[in-house]
Design a protein around this nucleic acid. Structure first.
Length: 272
DNA sequence: AAGTGGACCTGCTAGC
DNA sequence: TGCTAGCAGGTCCACT
């Protein structure tokens, strides 16, 4: 589900409310991607710090007691609740605090909650260590993108998705950014010209920024921590639009498979 | 080093 | 109505 905009929208929706809260209890449901790596008892009484995001991960500092790295996987969402309803079948992590309950709901359980003594400590350091630049980092530009793509023979779409050059664009926004930049998703990464790299870097930032403003994309079940859905799906130019006509030129949008993921593009607007 | 495919797990939908 | 195949917003890991 969640790409960078959804994760950031989620973060913004509860970070202020939970900051300073005292942890009063933890509940673990079915296993997530990895074990949490800490005895939950040892976290009781700690105070929640300022929630940070890196890529599609959230870092929840617990002052004096390290912190928790959260990932929403494909189907995860967080809710910050006043009440404490009984956990449902897909509620696999609860962080009870004196200001509310932070609950992770994740049917597919590709998400994760992992403890580390610090952001720089294992296993978090390794998970975050391979990540590329933040898209809104001023160092992320056409020059950086172009240099990072050199020598890569994979298709540009897959290079964007890999997350080791720039983070945050998942399947929806990688497709949308390539459309905005007019680039065929099958183009070998290293063949992207410098001017087109400028265009693509701008497109990535623009698309993610627009999605952020729209509150993210709600295809099925994305909600922020207060249950609010996103609306970027209304603005999607290509994602999920196979067979429909391109909003720019009218050509039928195509769907292909790259690296076992669907790619949507306009065969007329997007060139090699 | 970079690329590929499989793995993780559940739910929904289209089609028969 | 009921079953099945295919698809889904992510990313790690083993292998070539």
């Amino acid at each position: 589900m969640p790409e960078l905009p959804e994760v950031e929208v989620t973060r913004r929706s509860f970070a202020a409310a939970i900051q300073g809260a005292r942890v009063t209890g933890l509940r673990l449901g079915k296993p997530l991607r990895w074990p949490i790596g800490v005895d939950p008892e040892t976290l009781l009484g700690s105070r929640v710090g300022s929630v940070q995001r890196r890529g599609k991960y959230l870092w929840l500092p617990l002052e004096g007691r390290g912190g928790l790295l959260l990932h929403l996987g494909m189907s995860g969402s967080l809710a910050f609740l006043d009440a404490t309803p009984a956990p449902g079948a897909h509620d696999h992590f609860d962080l009870h605090t004196d200001r509310g309950l932070l609950r992770l709901t994740d049917p597919r359980r590709f998400g994760a909650v992992v403890w580390a003594s610090a952001l720089e400590a294992e296993p978090v350091a390794t998970l975050l260590g391979g990540l590329g630049l933040e898209p809104f980092d001023e160092r992320f530009d056409g020059l950086h993108l172009h240099a990072a793509l050199s020598g890569r023979r994979v298709a540009i779409k897959q290079a964007l998705l890999a997350g080791d050059i720039v983070v945050g664009a998942g399947n929806i926004y990688a497709c949308e950014a390539l459309f905005m930049a007019g680039i065929d998703p099958r183009l070998p990464a290293a063949r992207l010209s410098r001017p087109r790299a400028d265009k693509l870097a701008t497109a990535v930032r623009t698309v993610l920024g627009q999605a952020l403003e729209a509150g993210g994309t709600t295809l099925r079940d994305f909600r922020d921590a207060h249950g609010v859905a996103g609306s970027f799906q209304m603005q999607a130019q290509v994602y999920g639009r196979e067979g429909e006509s391109c909003r720019r030129c009218g050509t039928a949008i195509r769907r292909i498979v790259q690296g076992q993921r669907s790619t949507f593009f306009c065969p007329s607007c997007q060139k090699r």
